[in-house]
Computed example of a mutant assay.
Amino acid sequence: MVSTIPRHPFPTENTEEGLALLRETAQEEIDALEESSTGLGDAFQTSLILAHSHCLLDPRAAIFPTWDAWVTAMQVGSAVFAAATTTEPHVQCRIAHKDRTLQATGPQWYVNPSTWINALYLAVACREKDRINALCRVPVSLLRENGSRFEEYQYAWVETLQAYWRGDMDLVRKLVAAVDATDPRSVADPETVSKIVYPPMELFHRFIRKDNAGFNQALLNALRWHKEYWSEESRALHATGLVALGPLAMVCIAYDAGMPIEGESDYLPAVLIKRNWCGEFPT
């Protein structure tokens, strides 16, 4: 039985104008990257917001501009780490239908576990195996060199996802460490961790156990918590809440493995899950 979780209310007035402005800003930031690759952090944030924003009027991601925006965000996210890890002075990255020569950046404020996790989720949703593999070669130590402190559950979750894609034998141990690190008593923001960070971990846990019923129950919980979190007044107008990115990535992994998905929501663009747009143009 398929259960549907409706999205929280979000105003649609002036959406097209807002998208046009975001698209222009993202393109300007992307076009400036060959002059200064350190703009990758801002370009990624803008591109990610644009991808989410497209799903306001196109929640299924059924039209080409939405797919185009998601691919661009995925490309910028991957470029962040290609530029940070290259041992050459420059690296070639395809972004927004163009091959671009970016300068090596090394550690930067935006080369952190949060950015990595979002970049990985995007690559999974877009089914970009080569970029997933490249992201899984990024040393976790590099993510600690950005000058800011991040909580240990973030590093542990990065290590878990890398272990899965690399086929490491200690996957379960790393997943247990990531889940344990989300204990509400040990984190700075228990609400965000319990409603946004932890649910993809639980989905992944159910997936690797091949627990179909558990996965689908965890998916419904994740969507309910996502809706509850982003319905809060101070967050309700943030475009980031339009898509449940972490659960979406876990659903894509499960779907590709043949697991039946019994939850539907505007938070989960159905066309992305079903890979309909993959291969539409060179990425």
Rank of each mutant, 00 (worst) to 15 (best):
G147D: 11
G147C: 07
G147P: 07
G147W: 05
S148Y: 09
S148V: 06
R149E: 15
R149P: 02
R149S: 13
F150M: 05
F150G: 05
F150W: 09
E151R: 09
Y153F: 15
Q154H: 08
Q154V: 04
Q154L: 11
Y155K: 00
A156N: 12
A156D: 07
A156K: 06
W157L: 08
L161A: 10
L161Y: 01
L161N: 03
Q162G: 05
A163Q: 03
A163P: 00
A163Y: 06
Y164P: 00
R166F: 02
R166H: 05
D168Y: 02
M169K: 13
M169G: 15
D170W: 04
R173G: 12
R173H: 13
R173T: 13
K174C: 05
K174I: 05
L175A: 14
V176A: 13
V176H: 13
A177N: 06
A177P: 03
A177D: 12
A178N: 08
A178T: 03
V179D: 09
V179H: 11
D180N: 10
D180T: 07
A181N: 10
T182I: 05
D183E: 08
D183F: 02
D183M: 02
P184S: 01
P184T: 04
R185A: 14
R185Q: 13
R185G: 09
R185H: 11
S186N: 13
V187Q: 07
A188I: 12
D189I: 02
D189T: 08
P190W: 11
P190Y: 02
P190M: 08
P190E: 10
E191V: 09
E191T: 10
E191M: 03
T192V: 00
T192G: 00
V193G: 04
V193S: 01
S194L: 05
S194D: 10
K195H: 08
I196H: 00
I196M: 01
V197G: 02
Y198S: 01
Y198N: 01
P200G: 01
P200C: 00
P200N: 00
M201C: 02
M201E: 07
M201T: 01
E202A: 07
E202V: 14
E202H: 03
E202C: 09
F204M: 04
F204C: 06
H205D: 14
H205P: 06
R206W: 09
R206L: 13
R206F: 09
R206M: 14
F207R: 14
F207K: 05
F207C: 07
I208A: 09
R209V: 12
R209L: 15
R209E: 15
K210D: 14
K210Y: 12
D211R: 11
N212C: 10
N212H: 12
A213H: 13
A213R: 09
G214Y: 04
G214K: 11
G214R: 07
G214S: 13
F215D: 07
N216F: 08
N216I: 12
Q217S: 15
L219Q: 06
L220V: 14
L220A: 12
N221L: 14
N221S: 14
N221P: 02
N221F: 10
N221V: 10
A222D: 08
A222V: 04
A222G: 10
A222H: 04
L223Y: 08
L223G: 07
E228P: 02
E228G: 02
Y229W: 07
Y229N: 04
Y229P: 01
